[in-house]
Design a protein around this nucleic acid. Sequence first.
DNA 1: ATGTAC
Length: 480
Amino acid sequence: MGLKEKLIRKGKYIWELPKETIEGQRVPVILYLSDALFELLEEDALRQAANAATLPGVEKAIYVMPDVHVGYGFPVGGVMATNTETGIISPGSIGYDINCGVRLIATNLKAVDVAPRIKEIMNNMLKNVPAGVGSTSEIKLSKSQMKEVLVKGAGWAVEHGFGFPEDLQHIEGFGALPNADPEKASHEAYERGSDELGTVGSGNHFVEVQAVEQIYEPEIAEKLGIWEGQVMVMVHSGSRGFGHQVCTDYLRVALKVRDKYKIKLPDPQLACMPFNSPEGQAYFKAMNAAANYAFANRQILGFKAANTVRKTLGISWEEFGYRLIYDHAHNIGKVEKHEVDGKKVEVIVHRKGATRAFPPYNPEVPPAYREVGQPVIIPGDMGRASFLLVGQTNSMKMSFGTACHGAGRVMSRRQAKKYVKEVGLEKVIGNLVVVARGKGTIMEEIPQAYKDVTEVVRVIDELGIAKAVARLKPLGTLKG
DNA sequence: ATGTAC
């Protein structure tokens, strides 16, 4: 009998795997799924969440978002909070792509004016924005410049002419997380990171020109300065080879110290270290450095993408109306205080394929958004909708202040390619303008390979974790 | 996600 049969329905969209279902399981696993998404839940993803619930110092529950799928050790769409005094930190539960995240830039432009020129815009995007596996940047960083990037994050990019000082007010952690120590990253990480700053990467990463297709909450939309027919620029990328190397290095460290700290691992991919140990702290500081690299990366990418649109149209920045709505991580570990059994507890919240979604009046929400809540950007798969939400109060009670992150795969890359070859690419992606170095990524990233992001967002919205404000549709996409 | 297997 699989674990899926042992799930107990607690509500329309709430399922629970009670604690002690598997040996050593300290806390329940709570899943947020509609009937349709429940059908797509993989046994292995549930098993990974249950495994994590056995780790030392895990608090309250492991939460699983509606876009869940199997990941390395811990599912994508998983949330785990561990006590900072008694708990562990787990690199696999944050993910290989540290601070993979999303950025949304608003403009004053109308989609009706931009759409006729989208091919020209996207062809310039392909020339100006490096994308694809192993692509490199024209920015070459010395070791000392790298160290600055790892501490200053997006601020470093602004200092070097990529974007505007106001941007920093609208980034999670102001684009530079504290506790970043460049000395805790390896030589290999530096090597890989030195020529990848300002590059998109591959897989589901993209730079997209979008239009606001529908507003669900007019009052909130007005406060955020968004309107139907408005052109937006969205960036989805992370810390590239640098973050990947940090994860690789510290997974190795974690396996090495597993006996020293007597940690019982149900799966070696969950290798972890006590948060309050030299090894745990070293990973935490290297992870924050990688997060800052990613913030700098998206700062550069967003500015370059916006500038490409602006220059193609031959307009000034004033006419363009560049304004950063928000930028946040969806693969990260954050030290936060949360209520557990009526008491405030300091935890490290592992969010893997999961987005912070703080409610209105939380001090971490920028002043401009204080009354509406933290913007939550949910990128769709290529060709389908993306969404803008705002965090709501239930997130603090239901998921350590966390919402979903996107669609989540249902078709493997191989399956997707086969499907495209059978059906034909034109039929699969319709009128969308997609540019990429090779056709491989486009075939792997077709919308049909993903769960329906609309359904995922509906669950989060109806649970009161985050409120859907607007739907965005792609006009043109740059893939890796 | 990723110098797509060290």
